[in-house]
Design a protein around this nucleic acid. Sequence first.
DNA 1: AAGCATATGTTGACGCTGTCAAGATAACAA
DNA 2: TTGTTATCTTGACAGCGTCAACATATGCTT
Lengths: 213, 213
Amino acid sequence: MSQQTALKQKQNKPSYHHGDLRITLLNAANVLLKETGIEGLSLRKLADKVGVSRTAPYHHFKDKNQLLCAIAEKGFVQWQQDAANIFNQTGLSPKEKYRQFFHGYISYAADNPELYDLMFGRTIWKQNSATSELRNAAYPSFHHQVKMTKKWQEQGLMPSGEDTLRLSQVTWGTMHGIARLLIDGIYADRSHIDEMCDCAVNLFTQQITQSED
Amino acid sequence: MSQQTALKQKQNKPSYHHGDLRITLLNAANVLLKETGIEGLSLRKLADKVGVSRTAPYHHFKDKNQLLCAIAEKGFVQWQQDAANIFNQTGLSPKEKYRQFFHGYISYAADNPELYDLMFGRTIWKQNSATSELRNAAYPSFHHQVKMTKKWQEQGLMPSGEDTLRLSQVTWGTMHGIARLLIDGIYADRSHIDEMCDCAVNLFTQQITQSED
DNA sequence: AAGCATATGTTGACGCTGTCAAGATAACAA
DNA sequence: TTGTTATCTTGACAGCGTCAACATATGCTT
């Protein structure tokens, strides 16, 4: 953005060029997503809300899919920060840390159901429609869990007999499955969250000599 | 269907009234679903494929949602039969039976990805859009698992210390999560199925004195 | 057998969607 | 200053779900 444009923005003078449309669109899309869900998020409504014409977004996103991927991408980054905060806590036993991680994941999903649905929903991941940027944001999240799973196995928190990658897939699958059950309201609701998480953590962890991290 | 109409159908004489449109629509929808996925399943294409006008389906389904629910309903019935066949086997240890049940669930999902996606996807379950018929077909599937979980706990296959309902939600969530990972191709692919299932079964079951059911 | 209600089919129309093409305007680089 | 590029605009198109109005076949009642 040039100095002149920046100045215009500051002075709230209307200009032909928006100056910051990409970010504005992403923010508005997040709001619209929360309010109406994926099915209510249309490019036209979005453009209207931001105050530009229907086709303006196409200069910043190749198509709707790319916009959705960008939103999901932000979701992954945000969750990774939340997770990092949990892992960076000190003075917690491995089991307690894992418990908090599990609870944190489910809470993130329950607090941002529409976003979570977008992040892990078919809309984005079906037959390679995910952008490489999205993949680059999503995969580290799982890789980190694999790394932590290995550590948990070494610490004796999780069974060392199982293959680390399979164990990661199963534990992650459990979190994902519980999250989906909650969001879709199929066989569970929010009042079950704590008990479900504790039950799952109990199943996956064994009694070990307590030590800090 | 009257005798005359039935006769017409038999003789392949074209008639103004289709005579069997509801079932024909459901079957064609299943094919279209398999071929193009949910996003490719439109009422207009469907009607065209069957050879009726765009609005003819509305005399058999209130709207698109009701059609989708009806398809999903069939999916639940079908899965329940598959599951029953597994449970009705004789000469298997509880653990082996559970293993087959787990594998069967994942295989069903992997073999019918589009149908599974419809059955458990947001499209149908978001804010009470599921028909009561669908609920009546879907819930027994879970209730049966709760019943089996209780049995498995009593048999010592699964930890008896955990609340049965929570345990059911967790184990079911795991199956659902793994199924979704496979279908969406996020963090797993078909070549991992067996190992993932075995890993999960190992985690959920304990060593017990083997006995026949 | 006649007539009428009902079920089932049709075409027309509406507003919504994503997206392309062509043109207008601003920003920037030479 | 001039020309290139980025950005934003309107116009247009096909596809979608769905409603309204109308047509036709079926089946029940008399």
